[in-house]
Every structure is written in C-alpha cells, then in structure tokens.
Simulated assay, not measured.
Amino acid sequence: MNDEQDDLSLFRKTVQVDRRIHNETVEHVRPKPNFSNSPRRLGVRQQQAEFFFSDTYRAHLPEGPVRYCAEEESSYLLKQLRRGDYEPELFLDLHGLTQAQAKREVAALLSACQKEQVSCCAIMSGHGRGILKENLPHWLVQHPAVRAFHQAPPHHGGQASVLVLVAIPD
C-alpha cells in the first residue's frame, strides 16, 4: 500500500493546479420573434383567399372529367395528370368544411406548395351534396399559381379528388 500512496502523492504533486478555473459566462442571443402567424398576417392571407376565389365567377370547363390547363401551358399536362404521371406530395381534405373555410384552405395549400417547392398536390372534395366539388374547379381556375388540374386517377381518389399542378416561383 505504501507504493500506492507514494504514487498518489507523486501524481498530485505533478498535476498540481496553480489557479482555479473560472467559468466563462456566455450571453446567448435570443431569437427574433416570428410574426409570420400574427393575426394581422393571417387577416392578409384570408383577404388574399377571398380575392383569389369568387363565387360568382364560372369558368367554361369542358364536359366529362373535371380538367383545366392554363393558356400558356401544354395540353399534354392534362394527359399526364389523368394517367397519374405526377405524384401528389401534399393532400387537402375538404370534408366537413364550409365554402369560406374551403376557400381559405385551398389558398393556403397553393401557397404552401409554392413555398415548399411542391409542384403537384391533391384536393379531395368528396361526394356529399356536391357543393364543394362543383365550386372547386371554378376557384382553382382563378388562382394565378395553378398551371393545370384534372380529376384524379382512381388510386388518388377518383371522382372525389382533383390533382393540381402548381407553378413554382424561381
């Protein structure tokens, strides 16, 4: 044991600390508050939704499955949507919403698509009484970000759903 005590005392002499180490205090930078969801901004978004979608406007849509292609876009987009070549990344279910709520949700979805760089989304209106299903195409035609839309193929909801192609800003 004597050797162990000698080793311990030798170690303590060798590693002797001359001064104490003081903790340095670091002042953390507080993040700036995010005002993106403030009531004022939400009001602006709701006004934009009301601006984009008029209930009185009725687009001239062809008979058959719901479909639309913007003038500057290729009509081949409709064929690609019908075949299911585009896979939707975001989905919106309008079941149980009023028309006003549905308008706001559709505008928010299109805005989210542009913000998140998502080019294809699906909107499910369901069958129900058909009010939202009837109005949805007329609302989508009015939005400047909508490139094209088509009734979804069966594996994405069929007649109760619409696939939408959204223009992604550069």
Rank of each mutant, 00 (worst) to 15 (best):
V17W: 04
Q47L: 15
Q142S: 00
G96D: 11
R30D: 10
E105C: 14
L132T: 06
Y76G: 01
L77Q: 00
P144W: 08
N2W: 09
H22Y: 12
F52A: 01
D93M: 00
Q101F: 10
L132I: 13
E87M: 05
E71N: 13
L90R: 00
Q159E: 08
T56Y: 08
E134R: 15
V164Q: 04
L163K: 00
V146S: 02
E116M: 06
D93Y: 02
R129T: 10
P169C: 02
G64S: 02
G128T: 04
P39D: 05
E24R: 07
D18I: 08
Q46M: 13
R83Q: 13
S38T: 15
V15M: 10
S75K: 14
H150M: 01
Q159W: 08
A108P: 01
M124T: 11
L140P: 13
E89I: 07
A59T: 10
V29L: 14
Y86T: 04
R82S: 15
E105Y: 14
L77M: 00
C69D: 07
Q16F: 05
L10T: 12
W139S: 04
A160C: 06
F52T: 03
L163I: 15
L90A: 01
S54D: 06
R41N: 10
H150I: 11
V44I: 10
Q47R: 15
I168H: 06
L61K: 11
Y57Q: 08
S161T: 15
E50L: 13
V166D: 05
L92S: 11
K115Q: 12
G84Y: 15
E50N: 05
F35D: 11
K13W: 08
A108G: 04
P31Q: 10
E63C: 11
R83A: 15
N135Y: 10
R30L: 15
H150K: 12
G84M: 07
H156L: 09
K13P: 10
D93S: 02
S54Q: 04
V146D: 06
V146H: 00
S74W: 06
S125L: 06
H143A: 03
L81R: 11
Q80T: 00
V26N: 06
